[in-house]
Amino acid sequence: MQRFTYTQARSAEAVPGTGARIIAGGTTLYDLMKLDIETPAALLDVTTIPGLDGIAFAGDELVFGALARMSDAAEHPEVLRRCPVLAESLAKAASQQLRNMATLGGNLLQRTRCPYFRNGAHYPCNKRAPGSGCAALEGLDRGHALLGGSEACIAVYPGDWAVALVAMDATLDLLGPRGARSLKVAALHRLPGDAPQQETVLEPGEMILRIRVPVGPIGRASTYHKIRDRESYAFALVSAAVALDMEQGVVREARIALGGVATRPWRVPEAEAVLAGRRLDRALALEAGRAAFAAARPGRHNGFKVVLGTEAVADAVMIAAERSQRP
């Protein structure tokens, strides 16, 4: 790790002008700095900014301060009750130690686990070294994307929380050099295209202040279903965030997003459409699962995720539906 300066911010307004790299919990950035993959010359710690770590209801919205810790939101009783998909996406990520460190805003920006990216200069990687090529395309792609990949990059977006937020149509409040703006979480991450090094639409110095989630009838019957190589403390092989609005066994509205299989949080309206207006049983849930993976382009070692993901979506739909029966 090369040298850098470290400063603590006292207010959000002071952040955009500094030119420094923002660090929050540091669980991604410091990790990648230790691997010499991130090499910022200056760090600005934003976790010292007061007032951005709350979790509250405001009208029909659940508002998360960007500096709230993952563990706070994962166990917030109202979040658990009114929108379990959000809480579960956090509780099933990382470990409690890391959830105590990582922030809700920073978590959205975690970077891929692609080993060719993380292992440094021995391996070509367009995301780490633009123009060097993508070793994963013809390589060990068991953990790589079936959806949203390009000729330049098939690295998976590894997060869980963003997948749940995309399913829930969440919005970000940002503060940047050009002032404040709002952005759908669904619009935060870019497809890799021919510039996989550009992962989000955030401008340099732009900071996430808040995450707003509309919570209506569709929050309660929701779940985050995550299939991993071990029972805990692992990234998703495939995950499904599902939220349903049901009435007497019929799906009024469905939201489905996928994790672990796409280059960014992946909403699947095709699968949602399968369910909408129809009486739910497992066969229909499976049909939605198949629709979710209809566009999948498997590589050499990840084809099993089409079947696995289809079943995981179907299971998630059934779990969410069961929750709609709860009082």
């Binding site: 976790t47 563990s71 130690q97 890391l98 460190m101």
Partner: peptide
């Protein structure tokens, strides 16, 4: 693992400066 302000954290991934 140590406790930082009463919460368990991974001290290896916590900048001392924090």
């Amino acid at each position: 693992t140590v406790h930082l302000d009463g919460r368990r954290v991974a001290s290896c991934l916590t900048l001392a400066a924090k």
